[in-house]
């Protein structure tokens, strides 16, 4: 009897897995509506327009809304949690202060030095909190992770990229900055080649920053849905304990990954900005 059941499962599995695949695809990808239970909120559509040969679609999509919610939540966390008129904080205030202090001392000042570290702390704190909350939102029902969209992570990495370029040029001048890209002690005839390689490295660093966050956030969700999808594919409740168990495990792992990725993004951003501000001598 068990054998027959397994045969039946094998038959339907092939058909079901395709459905599950598209379901996961749809869930992960951006859409123009917000799926709430029993209600599809259709978000405003703005006609795309062309600018410099690129089609720019400024429609308010699902991920844009999630970004806004993440931003709103970030600001609310800081304004409601931190009481300015209190010399010694309580509750959330302590947590926020600890977080800001940690980012200032352990990330910013350590990677950039005392003066620049203090200057860039607001940017790094915003990076960390914003990305962290955006990452964690995918784990809350009804919300999705905006950072599992490569355009969002690319946008954030480009902020870092421009920060490195603008502040690097500001401190050592345009010629000095790009000259510093090439390590010192390189023979003169290797300069053009090295410059090209370093330039590619510069771009690759930020592409890696983009892809790291995006891939981590996407992979977790795919794994989560794939595990739960197994129940549907096999049409058997026997799979459920295993699937739910593994899904629970990967959910908890996701919390860890969301935090770690936000931290890594912040640390690498501070490292890149610090490197462009203080080139090796």
């Amino acid at each position: 009897m068990v054998f027959e059941q397994h045969e039946a499962v094998a038959d339907t599995a092939a058909a079901q897995s395709e459905n599950i695949g598209t379901f996961i695809q749809e869930h992960i990808s951006n859409s123009d509506s917000w799926h709430l239970p029993g209600l599809h909120v259709h978000l405003p559509h703005i006609e795309p327009f062309n600018l410099f040969g690129a089609t720019i679609n400024l429609s308010i999509t699902n991920h844009v809304v999630m970004l806004w919610i993440a931003g709103l939540f970030t600001v609310l966390l800081f304004t409601l949690g931190y009481k300015k008129n209190r010399p010694v904080q309580k509750g959330w205030g302590i947590f926020i202060e600890m977080l800001v202090l940690f980012i200032r001392d352990e990330i910013a000042i350590k990677n950039m030095g005392e003066k620049d570290g203090r200057r860039f702390t607001p940017l790094l704190v915003t990076f960390f909190i914003f990305i962290w909350i955006a990452n964690l939102m995918g784990l809350v029902p009804l919300f999705t992770t905006s950072t599992s969209n490569i355009n969002v992570t690319a946008g954030l990495a480009i902020v870092t990229f421009f920060a490195t370029q603008i502040y690097g040029i500001k401190t050592s001048g345009p010629i000095g900055y790009y000259k510093n890209l090439v390590p010192h002690g390189v023979p003169i005839f290797l300069w053009p080649l090295m410059f090209l390689i370093e330039l590619m490295g510069l771009i690759a660093k930020h592409v890696a920053l983009t892809v790291r966050l995006f891939a981590n956030m996407t992979a977790g969700h795919i794994v989560l849905f794939a595990l739960l999808g197994l129940i549907v594919i096999f049409k058997s409740f026997l799979v459920a304990p295993v699937s739910v168990g593994f899904a629970m495990f990967s959910y908890l792992l996701e919390i860890l990954v969301a935090t770690i990725q936000a931290y890594i993004f912040t640390v690498l951003s501070s490292l890149f900005i610090g490197m462009s501000l203080n080139p090796e001598h």
């Binding site: 795309p48 844009v64 355009n151 690319a154 996407t218």
Partner: peptide
Amino acid sequence: MLQLDPGMMIWTWITF
């Protein structure tokens, strides 16, 4: 999943 969408990037910048 991997297609580039400048609009989304712009929204990211604006929000950020």
